[in-house]
Each structure stands twice: as C-alpha cells, then as structure tokens.
C-alpha cells in the first residue's frame, strides 16, 4: 500500500460549489495534483478565493472533492482523520466557554486519551507555545495572537504526524505575525511534522516553507512550486538575507498578475450579484 514516502498525495482534485448554471456556481479548484513529503513544510500561497483553503479542507477530509483522490499516509481520505491530521484554522476556533487548558484537553478527550496523559500533554504543549500562565483564561480574555498560540497548542497536543494550518495568523497584525512565525519555525523544527500551511503573506511563506506552491487565480491550480533551501529552524537573520529577498521577489512576480486577475474577478462578481439583487 504505502509504496511512496509522500505523506500526502493529491491526484487530479477538482472542486466546484453549486451546480452548473446556478448563480453561485464556482469552479473553486481546477485539476490539482500535489505530493507532500514526510516531514516537509509546504506553503500554499495564492490570491484570495483561489481554492487554497478548499484544498486544505479536502486533504483534511472536511470536504469531499467533486472529483479526484487524496491519500494520506497511503490511505484514501473519506472523512476527517483525527489521528493523522490536526487543524489550525484562521478563525478563532477555540471553544469560548472553555478555558485554554480545557480547550486543549477537550481535543484529547474526543480521542479517548486518558486523564493523566491529557494533563501531561497539555502542560507540555502549553509550555511549548508559552501560554503556561494563561491556562485558566477564557479565549475572550486573550489577544488574537495568544488565541492562535492556544489553537496551535491544541493541535500539537493531539500528536498527529500531519498538521494543516489554514492562514493561522491571517487575522493578526504584522508584528505579532512575525514573532509567531519565528516561534513556529523553532517549534516545528523539533517536531518534524508534515505540514501544509496556507498563507497570504509572501514573507511568511518564504520564511517557513521547505517548498512554496503558488496558486493561480480561480479556478485555482498550482502554477509553480518553489523550493526554499534553508535549514530549520529558520533564524531571524534569514528574513533579512539576500536569498530571502530574492525568493520573496520571485514569488511576488509570480503572484502579481494572478492577484490582479482575482481582484477583477471578485469585483465583477460583486457587480453581478448587486445587479441581480436589485432586480
């Protein structure tokens, strides 16, 4: 079965929303194929609405593609794989009625982890993300950055070989983002997990990824994959190196036209929608 060392295999995945002829019909993802090697950090980058998140949800088994296959560690994906895959979402997905600690333990409760083991792992991941003192805070009492640290801790506590991160720092300010990115790089270098990381940020992609997959505008497909040959954990100095700048510029050139296309698409769609609503 598991003949390849690829942790994730995506084969000709196509996805659309709605049916043909409907107003909300959207070809979200054109035929996409992709391999993610064991222990690799792959960034997906592309214009808004290009289907990066859709692809991530399909890999994680949260959505079923209209056609195509996904294999995770040799097994075809039919639904969520909580033992293999943990998610970190962009939106705050902590349960607001639970404290940070309760949130972390809850994920393990779902998977039947014993009580003592839960406590031990929770303490470990809380320390790892630097939230030890905030274990008994409610999410609403934390800043956005701390909430995402907590969500990351929850995902790490599940000890899955694969981590899917959907713009985890998307809603944060630039500086928080930078610090979280550095910390994440250190953390992930230790864990050697396989990671797929969706982002909008060119710098974030270059800073974190082993490879960056650049998406075209809708219907999204992979336009090019760029390798970032730099050992983990990445040092802050990397962000100011000439290599970093060159890669970032390369990404910018690749993305620029796609982003324009995407913006035009979405404003055209807005006009069309406004038109039908008025009618």
């Amino acid at each position: 079965m598991a003949t390849s060392e690829a942790a994730i295999k995506v084969r000709d995945v196509f996805h659309r929303f709605g049916a043909e002829g409907e107003q909300r019909f959207v070809r979200a993802l054109a035929d996409t194929s992709l391999d993610v090697a064991e222990g690799e950090l792959l960034c997906l980058i592309g214009p808004s609405g290009c289907g990066k998140s859709t692809l991530l949800n399909i890999i994680g088994g949260l959505m079923t593609p209209s056609s195509g296959d996904v294999e995770v560690r040799g097994q075809p994906v039919r639904g969520p794989l909580p033992r293999d895959i943990a998610f970190v979402f962009q939106e705050n997905s902590l349960f607001p009625w639970n404290t940070v600690l309760e949130n972390i333990e809850l994920g393990m409760t779902f998977q039947g982890v014993s009580k003592s083991e839960r406590a031990a792992r929770a303490a470990e991941v809380l320390a790892a993300v630097g939230l030890k003192e905030f274990a008994h805070h409610y999410p609403a009492q934390l800043s956005g950055g701390m909430r995402q640290r907590a969500a990351l801790a929850r995902a790490l506590s599940l000890k899955t070989p694969i981590l899917l991160m959907d713009e985890p720092f998307g809603a944060l300010d630039e500086q928080t983002r930078m610090i979280l990115g550095e910390d994440l790089s250190v953390l992930l270098a230790q864990s050697r997990k396989t990671i797929v990381f969706v982002t909008h940020s060119l710098g974030e992609a270059v800073f974190l990824a082993d490879r960056v997959a650049v998406f075209s505008a809708r219907p999204g497909s992979i336009k090019q994959v760029i390798a970032v040959d730099e050992p983990h954990p990445r040092r802050p100095e990397f962000a100011t190196s000439a290599k970093f700048t060159a890669l970032r510029n390369q990404l910018y050139r690749l993305l620029h036209d796609e982003i324009r296309k995407a913006v035009q698409q979405s404003s055209a769609a807005d006009t069309a929608r406004a038109g039908t609503e008025r009618a």
């Binding site: 969520p80 033992r83 979402f89 994920g107």
Partner: peptide, 9 residues
C-alpha cells in the same frame, strides 16, 4: 466550532 470539533474526531 463544529468543523473544528469534527476535525478532532
């Protein structure tokens, strides 16, 4: 929140 719970099994 439901999606997240589902993803955690």
């Amino acid at each position: 929140l439901l999606v997240s719970a589902r993803s955690m099994g």
